[in-house]
Computed example of a mutant assay.
Amino acid sequence: MSSSTNTNDISSKPIKINKWESNALKNTLNDACKKYFKETLNYTEDYSVMNRRLCIALIACLFSLYALVYDWFNPFPKSRSVLIVCTVSYFIIIGILTFYMQFIESGRFFTGKLIDKTGIDPAQKCKIISKLKKYDDIYNLTLEYHDGKNTSTSSVEVLKKSVGNYFDENGVLCYDKYINDLKKIYDHARSNARKVK
């Protein structure tokens, strides 16, 4: 399944970024990782974590919109209590959103599952989290692999390397180097999950 890596499409279009911007470095590596899991390993991305975040943000926006519309039809002295309730509710929802992003989502940028085409084996799942501190060059990627046969066990592998290993002096992503490291930790996680059984 993960024996071959086809990178011809990436090689023809090199990805160049500002190598001094940590967010650009992290996002480029995250996007390359997603591309590898979706296109090469044929994982299907699960958007449930992102959808929950969007729902929380939508609720906050609805409180704001309701306050705006209500104040339009009932100018300030009449809308005072509604504005207070909506403002307080908005900040409570934004607090919940911040908590969700910090502690539940917590840097997770990909959740996917690999469905067995024969239908014999259950789906395998992967969760991938990345971290890159603002003035640090060490890129941390944590891959949590769940074998579908035993949901109670999972294998966790960590990739911890300098971003300098994956970008050249001009800020161009060395896709093959990054994918080779990804492939190693993915294969190691799969073999560890099999040993646990």
Rank of each mutant, 00 (worst) to 15 (best):
K13H: 10
S22Q: 10
S22Y: 12
A24P: 03
L25Y: 07
T28K: 00
N30C: 11
N30V: 00
K34I: 07
K34G: 07
K35S: 10
F37S: 04
E39C: 02
E39R: 15
N42R: 04
D46T: 03
S48W: 15
S48G: 13
V49W: 13
N51G: 00
N51L: 06
R53Y: 08
R53C: 07
C55K: 11
I56G: 03
L58K: 01
L58W: 04
I59K: 06
C61Q: 12
F63N: 08
F63W: 09
L65N: 08
Y66L: 10
A67L: 05
L68H: 11
L68P: 10
V69P: 03
W72R: 07
W72Q: 03
F73Q: 08
N74C: 08
N74K: 09
F76I: 08
P77G: 09
P77D: 03
S79P: 10
R80S: 14
S81P: 02
V82N: 00
V82Y: 00
L83T: 06
F91V: 05
I92K: 04
I93S: 12
I96C: 10
I96H: 15
L97M: 04
L97F: 13
L97T: 00
T98K: 09
T98I: 07
F99T: 14
F99C: 14
M101E: 08
M101L: 07
F103T: 03
F109Q: 11
T111R: 13
G112D: 03
I115W: 00
D121H: 06
P122T: 02
A123C: 03
Q124P: 02
K125A: 08
K125Y: 07
K125I: 14
I129N: 01
K134F: 09
D136W: 06
D136Q: 11
Y139P: 06
